[in-house]
Design a protein around this nucleic acid. Structure first.
Length: 316
RNA sequence: GGCUCGUUAGCUCAGUUGGUAGAGCAGCGGAUUGAAAAUCCGCGUGUCCUUGGUUCGAUUCCGAGACGAGCCA
């Protein structure tokens, strides 16, 4: 018997209708609070390109973890885990059920699996490592990692710059091999009774159509103006996580005159489709999912409502 | 109307001195532990426009046709 309180995950690729699904639950009167699980929605002033719920929608259906940092700042899976755990405890204490809705599958995964006791990211050290890599190249950095942590080096491609950098950072800051830390027992599992709903398209082509439609709406809705505004308001660069978000990177390149509008549209669309594909890959590997077809919106909402009602009732 | 060039993967194009072909992008599959909308790995999906001829064998050479682009009328 599971004595833990309930919590609900609503997961799905971009443009699968997660926001609508979450709002449907809230507005049908179920005792829930929403937590966003999205690495792009955390940024203030990035509204159009992230397809953030509108001000009106957020007023009707408040989401936690939206607009919490500036586009110059960095968020992380580890920070998300801490933030989400605190919010879930609060919501549960208020007698409500936390609904975690979003598309950042690493965050969902981290929340469920917990994290090992790895050192926090260190911007200064990363800058040093990056400068070194510029001099000797990433294959040589991979070679250095092979000395410090052969197990992790064997797991990583010499081209996987981001993970090589992180593994070196972990070794240097902790004095231990990352693989040694990961071999230690993981932290406790999430103390909630989970209902995990996955919104998956029965037809990928339909999702692609939705993505195209939404991207067009973003362009018409002023994505370029938004990026111009962001660049005036903040000291941004293309290597910041915020500006690496799908759509923003391509809009930036267009505004710089590096690509024309047609190319911007094509690259933006392709990047969004590729994002959706990676999200679906994550979902295929997850256990205990209640999978609903995001193409059949009304049916899915009904079924989801039924499941959630069942869970929230058992909470009493 | 005449001449020239072109037609090869979903797109842009290479290539085959005649032995049924390969890049980039797109797409598809996978990995994923403080950047994750990130980062990385794997996979070629084809009436080589059609049709006659030459040939053991034609996507390749020759003829005709279709379509497209350009130049001349």
């Amino acid at each position: 018997m599971n004595q833990h309180p309930p919590a609900i995950f609503i997961m799905g690729p971009t443009a699968s209708g997660k926001t609508a699904a979450a709002m449907h639950l809230l507005e049908s009167g179920l005792p829930v609070e929403l937590i966003s699980v999205d690495s792009a929605l955390v940024f203030k002033d990035m509204d159009i390109g992230t397809a953030k719920p509108t001000k009106a929608e957020l007023a009707r259906a408040p989401h936690h973890l939206i607009d919490i940092i500036a586009p110059t700042e960095v968020y992380s899976a580890a920070q998300f885990r801490l933030d989400a755990l605190a919010l879930m405890a609060d919501i549960t204490a208020r007698g409500k059920v936390p609904v975690l809705v979003g598309g950042t599958m690493l965050y969902f995964n981290t929340l469920q699996q917990g994290m090992h006791d790895l050192p926090t990211a260190d911007a200064e050290l990363r800058a040093q490592l990056h400068a070194e890599a510029d001099l000797i190249g990433w294959p040589a950095m991979h070679g250095k990692l092979a000395v410090l942590d052969p197990i992790t080096a064997a797991r990583l491609e010499p081209t996987d710059t981001q993970r090589i950098e992180r593994a070196l950072e972990v070794c240097i800051l902790s004095g231990k091999a990352m693989s040694a830390i990961l071999a230690e027992p993981a932290r406790e599992i999430l103390p909630y009774n989970l209902l995990k709903i996955a919104l998956v398209p029965s037809d990928r082509a339909v999702l692609h159509q939705r993505i195209a439609l939404r991207f067009e709406q973003m362009l018409e809705g002023g994505l370029f103006d938004e990026v111009r505004m962001l660049r005036e308001k903040y000291p941004l660069s293309l290597d910041l996580p915020s500006m690496r978000c799908v759509g923003y990177r391509q809009a930036w390149e267009y505004l710089e005159g590096e690509i024309d509008l047609k190319t911007c549209r094509e690259k933006g669309l392709a990047a969004t489709r590729q994002l959706a594909k990676r999200q679906l890959t994550w979902l295929r590997g997850m256990a205990d999912l209640t999978t609903l077809d995001c193409v059949a919106t009304e049916t899915s909402h009904e079924v989801m409502h039924h499941h959630v009602m069942h869970v929230t009732k058992n909470n009493k």
